[in-house]
Computed example of a mutant assay.
Amino acid sequence: MKNLLGKLSGAALIALSALTANVQAADLHVMSSGGFTAAYKLLGPRFASATGNTLDTTLGPSMGKSPEAIPNRLERGEPADVVIMVGYALDDLIKQGKVIPGSRVELADSRIGMVVRDGAQKPDIGSIEGLKQTLLHAKSIAYSDSASGVYIERELFKRLGIEEQVGPKAKMIPRIPVASVVANGDYEVGFQQVSELLPVQGAAFVGKIPESLQSVTRYAAGIPVGAQHPKEAKALLDYLASPEAQPEVTSTGLDSVTSH
């Protein structure tokens, strides 16, 4: 525990202690979607060690038809004290009365990037034309079944004017990281939020798509209605959104949205 807390700055420790001063240790059930997972894996253990809480974490997409998707888990009645997910998907749960409206916190922004297999030549996607030519010449294209993939399938190809040419060779990949199917050679190029691409071994990060074509995904978190440990959950959310947590957040490929 001491070694882990030693990685936090003095200011971060003071802030975390203040957030959790009146909180009892609890077993928190956390549901987190892919884009914020890398940051959560860094920050969650620090919160747990500093507070005595344990974090029982379930991973799943923010939307979609798969049983693992967070809305579907909540619909089945799976217990959750915290949900971390795409902001507009969280808004839907708030509107449905499944997440407490005032509990929402803003966590980070995520941009779309591209990977190729390790050792493959990295194309230039820094310009609109460069990205367009990369897609036209790629033998196969993979994209996610979450927010970034929905944007690519429904909007990006159309905006580039290449929907008919690339549609037949592009596929949405459910549940698993897109970079993994590029790493094993099933697809030549893959697109997903940067924070979900970077952790996968065997795939090489090429870069973000041009800013003028970006679809920025906001990650947010909230406390479900019926949460067993709402006070402890709020302490976790306050910590994840705190200025002290931002170096870890940005180190995973996310962009900070803290207003402090």
Rank of each mutant, 00 (worst) to 15 (best):
L136C: 06
E196P: 07
S146M: 06
I152T: 14
L107E: 05
F191V: 09
G167V: 04
A170T: 00
E153A: 11
G130L: 10
K158M: 03
K132P: 03
V166W: 09
V182F: 06
G207W: 07
L198D: 13
K169T: 01
E164R: 10
L160K: 01
A142Q: 02
D124G: 09
K171C: 14
V115N: 05
G149T: 04
V194Q: 08
E196G: 10
V206K: 11
G167T: 08
E164G: 04
K139Y: 09
F205K: 04
L136I: 13
L107S: 00
P168S: 04
R175K: 12
L135W: 09
Q121C: 08
P123V: 01
L135Y: 02
A142N: 00
S195D: 10
A142T: 00
Y151T: 05
E106K: 12
K158L: 12
K169S: 01
G130S: 03
K158F: 10
K122S: 07
F157S: 05
Q192V: 02
G126R: 04
L107P: 08
G113W: 08
E155P: 09
P168R: 00
D124N: 12
I141P: 01
Q201D: 13
G119N: 12
G185F: 07
P123L: 07
A108S: 07
E163V: 13
Q165Y: 11
G167F: 15
D186I: 07
P174H: 04
G167L: 11
A138T: 00
Q133S: 15
D124Y: 04
Q192D: 05
Q165H: 10
A170D: 01
D145Q: 14
G161C: 00
V181E: 13
V206M: 15
P123G: 09
V182S: 11
